[in-house]
Structures are given as C-alpha cells and as structure tokens.
Nucleic acid binder design. Structure first.
Lengths: 115, 115
DNA sequence: TTTCTATATAACCATATACTCATGTAATAT
DNA sequence: ATATTACATGAGTATATGGTTATATAGAAA
C-alpha cells in the first residue's frame, strides 16, 4: 500500500472522527438552517460554553465549519454541505437497522430530517 | 431536543466512529472487491492478526460487515454498500481540501478510487 | 479606564481506544 | 488422540478524547 494511501486513510479517518460525537452532531444539526453564534449553539446543544467552544474548534480544524467574528460574537456556519448528505446516508442506514415497526420508524426518520 | 433525537445522534456517532480509524478503512478497502478471510485481510492491511480480528469484530458490531464461517476460515464482506458512497463523498472532500496541484490531486483521487 | 459580555483556552481528570503479547477455541489433518 | 491451522479474545499498557472548572482575551459600553 503506497505512502499516499496511508496518508489518505489517515485523512479520511480524521474526517469521520470529527463526526463521531453526539454533541458535535447536535451542533452541526443546529447549523442546518444557517449560521449561529456560540451562545445560540450552547442553547440548542444543551452543552456548556467551554465544551461547545472546544467542539467548534475541532470541527473548524476539520474544515467542516467556518467561523466569522462580528463584534464580540463568533458566528459559525457549515463550510461543506456534503456533511448533510453524509448524515442522511447514515441516518437512512441506522433507521433501517433499528428494529422498529413501520410507524415508529417513520417518526424516527422524520425526526432526523426535519431538524 | 427529544429523547429520540438524543438516541439518534448517539447511533449516528457510533456509526461514524467505526469509520474513524485508518486500519479499519484499510480493511474495508480490502473488501471492495468482495469477501476475504482474516488471513487475507491481515496481508492487505499490514496489521497483526489479533488487531485485525478486533477491528473486524468492531465493524461487525456496527453492522458494516458480515461474517461467514466456512471450514476453519472466516470470510468477511461488506454488509452495506453505502459505506463506499460515504467514503467517496469524504474522499472528494478531502482531496479538494488538500493543497495539491492539479496533477498530484489526480493521482490522489485515483489512488483512492482504484483500490 | 473600568466593566460587561462573548468566546477561547489551559489544567486537570476519567474514560475510551488501539495496540501488543499471550492464550483460548474450533475445525481439519495426520 | 495429537497436531496444525485459522481465528478470537483476555490482560495489560500507552495515548487519545471528552468533559469540567477556572482563567485569559477581545470587543463594546459606561
């Protein structure tokens, strides 16, 4: 396996790693409808300010979100819309894996999609 | 945020987590062209037998691969083809993020796709 | 300047993860 | 029955990760 491949697997793994955390998914979910500042994200995610800031830094490192500072606030937004394609793919998969009856399944899927 | 959402984020996170490891990506890459037994996967991944077995167990838990035992060997294969859609999405993203010139970029992408 | 508000970051701790080595187990072959 | 081959798993260890609390920094307001 080439050196290039090795590197590539590392990159891809780090990318998935950034999405492998419930709180970060919550934050990304909060950004579905556009930019939010940190305080707003703290609200919707239910996390602490310090913790949310850390996750935001990590997501930014992974180039998944971008930051724009305006006045004393920091506005974050999605840098790559493909995130949601990814999540939707995974959500479909998860939903189909869960042994829910059809009704519950529908609730589940719509809960994921309408946020 | 509903209880259902909380659960959902957890599920999705665990799914991404399974993909957030270079060795596991290597293994999945090794399964692109069909089933392989553990020894073959040890070969193509370059890992130790114990370690590969553990990653296989984890991937199986995540329902990403399935196992079929034949004789004394264990054959693994992809349980959900969407994995590769995911990886391709991410690879495209990674490639476009890397500051490579066009030529190098092409090499990079084809290296990812042709394995 | 001082103060307040918004955000980032350091220090620290607990848990999770990935790896290695050694050993267990199961099917086959001798 | 014993040995061999193929795989799984437990124990132990090092590092990574996620969380908390306390503090630093930066801009706006008084």
């Amino acid at each position: 396996m080439s050196q290039l491949d090795e590197q590539a697997f590392g990159h891809v793994a780090r990318f998935f790693q950034a999405l492998a955390e419930p709180m970060r998914l919550k934050i990304l979910n909060g950004l579905r409808d556009g930019e939010k500042n940190v305080s707003e994200l703290v609200e919707v995610s239910g996390g602490t300010q310090a913790n949310v800031s850390k996750h935001l830094a990590l997501l930014r490192d992974a180039k998944i979100i971008k930051r724009e500072s305006r006045g004393t606030k920091a506005y974050y937004s999605i840098a790559d819309q493909r995130i949601y394609e990814l999540c939707n793919l995974v959500c479909g998969q998860i939903a189909s894996q869960m042994s829910l009856d059809a009704a519950a399944n529908e609730v589940f899927i719509s809960a994921l999609k309408t946020n």
